[in-house]
Design a protein around this nucleic acid. Structure first.
Lengths: 207, 207
DNA sequence: TCAGATGAATCTACACCGTAGACATTCGGG
DNA sequence: CCCGAATGTCTACGGTGTAGATTCATCTGA
């Protein structure tokens, strides 16, 4: 083993994550990250084959704060707790939120969380064949909610335009209160929807 | 009005869409699109302020093929039909699928589809305040499914790794058949889950 | 008929990006 | 002592989005 590395893969992800938090996603270029580490841009390629691979690792690292669910709670609470924790962790690092949304991390953290999800869903009484599918569905929903949050600010106006459609519907009640796109409230609503669906399916599977 | 424009905004989106279908998403650079139209790259900026804005328009245009739902069907069928149509339209243009997934289009087509969704959900018996929230949830889920489809090929291996977690669970049945990430089957499953959730909520709202 | 206005299309140029490929450096083991 | 080998560095290339100035074709009013 020649020349002990002065730069570990973890150093890189940690620094990149901080940089992304501080200056936004588009600041996480190879050159900027290297500058932050005070090393040559090309050195990063010793640890990650691509910029893509590096960002995957950074996104995964951002989920390290997500803890294990409490095994004593009923599955629905565990599920909400877990998914909320992931959402919070992702939003706490705005620089990588978009990346997490676009391609849910499957690094060590991602796999750990997926395992926890599967473990929780195993207690729902859902047919075994459906557990993994449900996991994917939940991850997909979570990812999408994050994507909505990322662009919420820029797009709320256009959503408002969509929402007026409802007001003009026969029987629709105009003057409804605003539903903020990507809000925590909105996330929780969809989650309850999904959990109700799981409950309905696990009780008596339909179709 | 001096000098009639030889280049319309729609020309651009149509050409860019074709180019993206033929050569992939990363081929849709300003220069390549301009080359395809046989004009100067900078000319595109007369019609779209950004590359971003241009791609938004292209993504929206890709949804033009989605038809209006049949008002005679029950709402659940209308919903599945509509969402499936959007999914098909998006997948038929692989060059923009990722973009559609990342930021659901809110151009004319997107708004038309959102309106159709709202119209359908208005018949569910769902509390009025929840209709728009459910719309957002469904769009989020659809977007997420598309995102999964995009990267399915590259990531199935790692998903396989996740799936083995389930096999090792006490009471888990190893040797389960493979669930292909982003497949139509997977999409349909989550959709049924959501519809069951809607049904449960519209019957007797819980919480 | 012709100057001028007006906006579309173009040209040039800049700063920046990811990264291939050759090179230098620094260590442990024989 | 030297050699193999992995790490860090340097240079350079082809590409990107797009700002700013400029050309050009057309319509208008005199």
């Amino acid at each position: 083993m020649p020349r002990p590395p002065k730069l570990t893969a973890e150093d890189i992800t940690r620094t990149a994550l901080r940089l992304g938090d501080r200056e936004g996603a588009e600041a996480m270029t190879m050159r900027r990250i290297a500058a932050e580490l005070d090393c040559d841009p090309m050195s990063l390629y010793r640890h990650y084959t691509n910029r893509e691979a590096l960002l995957d690792a950074v996104a995964d690292a951002a989920l390290a704060a997500v803890g294990e669910p409490d095994a004593d709670e009923p599955w629905a609470e565990r599920l909400t707790g877990l998914l909320t924790a992931v959402r919070d962790a992702a939003l706490r690092h705005p620089g990588v939120t978009a990346h997490i949304a676009a391609r849910p991390p499957l690094g060590p953290q991602g796999r750990r969380i997926a395992a926890a999800l599967i473990g929780t869903l195993a207690d729902t009484g859902l047919p075994p064949a459906d557990v993994v599918r449900t996991t994917q569905t939940l991850i997909a929903y979570l990812a999408a909610s994050l994507a909505m949050s990322v662009h919420a600010g820029t797009r709320d106006a256009r959503w408002e335009q969509v929402r007026t459609v409802f007001d003009e519907l026969p029987g629709g009640m105009p003057g409804q209160e605003l539903n903020i796109v990507g809000s925590t409230d909105q996330f929780g609503y969809g989650l309850r929807l999904l959990i109700d669906g799981i409950r309905a399916r696990s009780a008596g599977p339909r179709v």
